[in-house]
C-alpha cells in the first residue's frame, strides 16, 4: 500500500493520483451498498404485499382481520383467531416478564457490584442465545405438564398446550432483551442524579423509584416495546406449546394460535388450496408491518433517551 513513499517524485505523484482515485471509487461502492440495504427493506415489504394482493382483491382488509371464520377450503380466511392469539400470548407474556425483568435490571444497575454485573451479563446473553426450538422443547417437557397440573387444580380440563404455556415460554424468551436494555438504560442515568436525591435523605429504593426510574421511563418503555415486538414474532417455541387451534382463546388454559405459528404450520399445504398462500403471505405482511413499527418506535425512543442523557 505504501510502496511508493521513497521513490522518485513523478512516480509518487502518479501513484498518489491512482490512490486517491481508488479511494473515491471505494467510497462510491460503499455508498451504493449502503443504499441497497434500504432498498432491500422496501423490497421485502413490497414482495410480501404483492403476494397478498390476490386475497385483498377478493376480500376487504377489515373483513380479513376481523372475521373469526378460518375455513381455507371454503376460501374463508378470517385472521381474527390468529391476531387475538398473538395479542393474548404476547400481552400475557409481557405481564409475566416485565415486573421480574425490571426488578432484575434495577438490581443489576443500582445494587450489584460491578463484579457481579460482569459475571451475570454473559449469562443473560447466553439465555438470549439459546435457540428457540430448545426453548420449545423445554416448554413441552416442563411448562406444558406444569400448566396441565395447574389447570386441573383450578378445574379446567386442559392438555397443557395452551395460551398460558405459550405466554410463559415467550416471557422467558424476551427476558434477556428486556433485562439487558433496561440495565443499560438505568446505568445511563448520571451518578449526580443519585447523589442529589440520596443527599436529601432518601433510601436507595426511593432514589431508584422517584429519580432513576422516572428519568429513564422512556428508555424502559422502549425496552418493553422491543420485547413485545420480539415476542409477537417468535415462532417455533410458541408453536410447540400453544396448542394451535384456530379459535379466539377463551381462557388461560385454552389453546391459542398466534400468527407466526399459522404461517409456519401451513407452508406445506398452502400451494394446494387457492388463495391459501396469499392469505398466509398477508399474515406475514401484517406481522412485518406491526413488528417493524413497534421496533421503529422503540429505537427512536432509545435514541432520544440517549441524546437527553448526554
Amino acid at each position: 500500500m505504501g510502496r511508493a513513499w521513497g521513490e522518485m517524485g513523478t512516480r509518487v505523484i502518479h501513484s498518489l493520483r491512482a490512490r486517491s482515485r481508488q479511494d473515491r471509487v471505494v467510497a462510491w461502492v460503499l455508498r451504493i451498498a449502503l443504499a441497497s440495504v434500504n432498498v432491500l427493506t422496501v423490497l421485502i415489504a413490497v414482495g410480501l404485499l404483492l403476494k397478498s394482493m390476490p386475497i385483498l382483491r377478493t376480500q376487504s382488509l377489515g373483513k380479513l382481520l376481523l372475521s373469526s371464520t378460518w375455513k381455507p377450503l371454503q376460501s374463508q380466511f378470517g385472521l381474527l383467531p390468529f391476531l387475538s392469539g398473538t395479542i393474548a400470548t404476547t400481552v400475557l407474556a409481557m405481564l409475566l416478564a416485565v415486573p421480574v425483568c425490571l426488578l432484575s435490571a434495577v438490581y443489576l444497575a443500582e445494587y450489584a457490584r460491578s463484579r457481579v454485573r460482569n459475571w451475570i451479563a454473559p449469562v443473560i446473553d447466553l439465555l438470549a442465545g439459546i435457540p428457540s426450538v430448545v426453548y420449545g422443547l423445554w416448554g413441552v417437557l416442563v411448562i406444558v405438564p406444569a400448566v396441565r397440573v395447574l389447570g386441573k387444580a383450578l378445574g379446567y380440563s386442559t392438555t397443557g398446550y395452551s395460551l398460558l404455556a405459550g405466554a410463559t415460554i415467550l416471557g422467558i424468551m424476551v427476558a434477556p432483551i428486556i433485562i439487558s436494555i433496561c440495565t443499560e438504560v438505568l446505568r445511563a442515568v448520571p451518578t449526580e442524579a443519585r447523589e442529589t436525591a440520596l443527599a436529601l435523605g432518601l433510601t436507595r429504593w426511593e432514589v431508584t423509584r422517584h429519580v432513576v426510574l422516572c428519568s429513564s421511563r422512556r428508555g424502559i418503555l422502549a425496552a418493553v416495546v422491543l420485547g413485545f415486538a420480539r415476542a409477537a414474532g417468535e415462532t417455533m417455541a410458541v408453536l410447540m406449546v400453544v396448542g394451535n387451534v384456530p379459535r379466539v382463546p377463551s381462557s388461560l388454559f385454552a389453546p391459542a394460535y398466534p400468527l407466526p405459528a399459522l404461517i409456519a404450520n401451513n407452508y406445506g399445504e398452502m400451494m394446494s388450496i387457492p388463495m391459501y398462500d396469499s392469505a398466509l403471505m398477508m399474515a406475514a405482511f401484517v406481522l412485518l408491518v406491526v413488528v417493524a413499527l413497534f421496533n421503529l418506535a422503540a429505537r427512536l425512543a432509545l435514541l432520544r433517551f440517549a441524546r437527553d442523557e448526554q
Binding site: P190, E192, A193, E195, A199, L200, G201, V211, S215
Partner: peptide
C-alpha cells in the same frame, strides 16, 4: 444514614433537576 443525610445537605457539581 437517612437522619444523617437530612442533617447534611449536598449540592453536586452539575445541577441535576429531579424529573418533576
Amino acid at each position: 444514614v437517612l437522619e444523617l443525610r437530612k442533617k447534611v445537605g449536598f449540592m453536586p457539581q452539575r445541577p441535576f433537576p429531579l424529573p418533576m
